[in-house]
Design a protein around this nucleic acid. Structure first.
Lengths: 408, 408
DNA sequence: CAAGTTAGTTTATCGCTTGAACTATATAAG
DNA sequence: CTTATATAGTTCAAGCGATAAACTAACTTG
């Protein structure tokens, strides 16, 4: 139910620790190996035994449980032309999946991925959510989710659980949005369970930037540690450490948008002064570039900005350059605090990369030389609706780490 | 051997997971309860069973192991005057201890604490370590440690292991000091094992500020999450999250000293620009206050500064005020990145607190309003040589979390 | 001194991993 | 076609650790 916690913890801390824990641990160990093997390559029981260090007997017993729970599936023989009895390949059951959902300022979206991560169905519905109550938005999303679930079912994929990403601070345990400035929500409890009635794994709630970071972790190049910086209306962030989302003691670590980059700067929507967001947020860039936002959609304004940049508008170029420099300061500071190895740029930072990249690297070299090499500053590969993929992937991951939740 | 890792992990990740793990887990669970009970109050087997959720039979068996390993000791009856058979109190064996050691710019120190944390012996030897090779310093420390170990032995305390704190970046696994600017060490491998020949738990290496943070965790007011900011020649930091030292993927998270607080500022010793250390480090404060450092010891210069402040010197007051403001900016940024609940000031920041506190709070309110309430900005209670206590405490903690390391 | 109450130990049972023996299924050689 | 060899997967006795219930120990109350 709850979204991912701060640290790795196979058996919950302070728990009595009977020998059922050993089973759960090994169940997860075996399943993790299957899940992390590249699709198309199907490990056998014997290979799993060798890889995990468990005996063949234990692996057989564990695999049996996972097959009965419907998490794994046997697929044809693994090998032929060689001596000896061929093994039976194993894979994540492709007829089971999870749903990723997203509520954003101007759209809602839902999609289903199989346990192995392939997108089966996806639907985005444009909708201005600024003027709606959370109930109205949730109703619209429930309808959309129901349709997508039906479509997945037609394709033979059963939905086990879901994840919802929203652009705001989130209290994972209680499914509450503490504050979502761009939606106008404050301390809003969302009845996430109604989005997917009856699913065994429930529905978890995620911060949008965190979910996007998780998508980058799952679908991007192999990195175990990075800071994901997402440029949307605000500037969000997700911190991935040791392949885990790091949310901090109160659940909202990685909020890069409010690092101080200019002590003499202007006041931010958060009440602070000189925050990154006041220089590198969308509104800040548009306004500095002299682009009118009023009465236009965000994508129109962004198209305008890109046009101005291509045309060589000095105001636009300066605005983006300033954003890049500020981003460099923020990343420099953040890298000192958490000592992270790489930075991934998403949202409008990815779109503006060709203008942003240079100033960002220069700034980084100036404020934290040696802390981060240039090749570790990259743009996100997961495109729009990455938050959706990340939320879904995170639910899968939680299942892989605790498969016993799905046992009879 | 290695110093504390990033996250909680009772059984190592990816481990096969036999049922010996259950034993190790429960061994640690029981021991942790004994260790965290206030001294003077001795829990019985029955109370431990109730507290941990284990059965009395299991607790008895576990306690037997811990007694045989010499980690616990039975102490007189727990209670009298009440009905029923009185239980037997249990406590950490007071005749077992660990040694904390410290190498700093102008002294070396060693001390032994019992497992329950009481300081048994402590010796500080003044020594200018700037002009010595690491071998020479280590030899001097080995001598000091040997004497202190002997003194502890005379008092009936046997040393099981040790921890060494140094003012520099540290690579825990390989006992290597990556860089210690104020000692002039670069990529220096220390033969820490020779400091305490033959001890079963070995000797671990720590960063000084990290060790001081751990001391604050163990001996300060009860807090699970805080950022410790240590003002020494440089400005160091230690990040404690969920009662664990958080060192980050490369082992040097929490380096608050190099957060950017003034993008237009001066160049730092780290090569960056406008780092906190360039405004709030000792040298920066002395120089801004117009206090000469050349040819004087650091404590003399600090005494001078305190005199100037008491006398109302405008230069001194302004210098400290500027440091406080910069500290506020850094803490504001750091609190966004890791979302920490409290800040503890140590080193010269604790000494200068009465002049520093106001400007720091003002600055914090300006740059990150609401992120940290004023009562959560406190000064460290552990005085000088806190790093020593922290290093020792951390070794004890590692033992409590994995007592099986001491079993036959 | 018997009854009541709490502490700690003993004993049978259960669950899970292990290692060895065993069965199953393929290729290679004669 | 039969036999040897190699590898995959299952079966089974053994061991270990937790559990629950029965039992012994030690103290207070009446």
């Amino acid at each position: 139910m709850a979204s991912t916690a701060s640290a790795t913890s196979p058996s919950d801390a302070g728990a009595p620790g009977n020998m059922g824990d050993v089973r759960r641990n090994n169940l997860a160990l075996v399943l993790a190996r299957v899940a992390q093997s590249p699709s198309g390559i199907h490990l056998t029981r014997a290979q799993l035994a060798a890889a995990t260090g468990l005996t063949k007997a234990s692996v057989s017993s564990i695999v049996l449980d996972l097959l009965e729970a419907g998490i794994l599936r046997e697929v044809g023989l693994s090998r032929q032309g060689e001596r000896g009895r061929p093994g039976v390949g194993l894979e994540l059951n492709p007829s089971r999946g999870v749903m990723g959902m997203e509520i954003n300022v101007d759209y809602i979206a839902a999609g289903v991925t199989s346990l192995s991560g392939e997108l089966v169905v996806k639907e985005i519905r444009e909708r201005d959510n600024r003027d709606s109550s959370s109930e109205a938005v949730m109703s619209a999303l429930a309808l959309l989710a129901s349709g997508v679930r039906e479509a997945a079912s037609v394709k033979g994929v059963d939905v086990l659980g879901g994840g919802l990403a929203v652009p705001g601070l989130v209290e994972a345990g209680s499914s509450t949005v503490t504050v979502a400035p761009n939606l106008g929500w404050v301390d809003t409890r969302l009845d996430v369970a109604r989005l997917l009635p009856g699913v065994p794994l429930g529905v978890s709630l995620f911060n949008e930037a965190n979910a996007a970071a998780l998508a980058e972790l799952a679908h991007g190049p192999q990195r175990r540690d990075f800071l994901f910086v997402s440029g949307e209306v605000g500037v969000g962030g997700g911190l991935v450490l040791n392949s885990e989302l790091f949310t901090g003691p109160e659940g909202n670590a990685g909020e890069v948008g409010h690092i101080v980059v200019d002590p003499g700067g202007v006041t931010c929507s958060c009440g602070g002064t000189g925050c990154l967001e006041t220089v590198a947020g969308q509104d800040a860039i548009f306004s500095a570039a002299g682009i009118t936002v009023k009465g236009r959609s965000r994508s129109e304004s962004m198209a305008n900005l890109l046009g101005a940049l291509a045309a060589g508008s000095p105001a636009a170029l300066t605005a983006v350059q300033r954003a890049g420099t500020a981003l460099g300061v923020a990343v420099a500071s953040a890298s000192r605090v958490v000592n992270v190895r790489a930075v991934v740029l998403g949202g409008h930072f990815a779109v503006l990369d060709q203008w942003l990249h240079g100033p960002l690297l220069e700034s980084l070299a100036r404020y934290a030389p040696g802390a981060l090499s240039p090749e570790h500053v990259i743009t996100s590969t997961v495109g729009e609706a990455g938050a959706l993929l990340g939320a879904a992937g995170s639910v899968v991951r939680a299942l892989v780490e605790a498969p016993h939740r799905l046992q009879a």
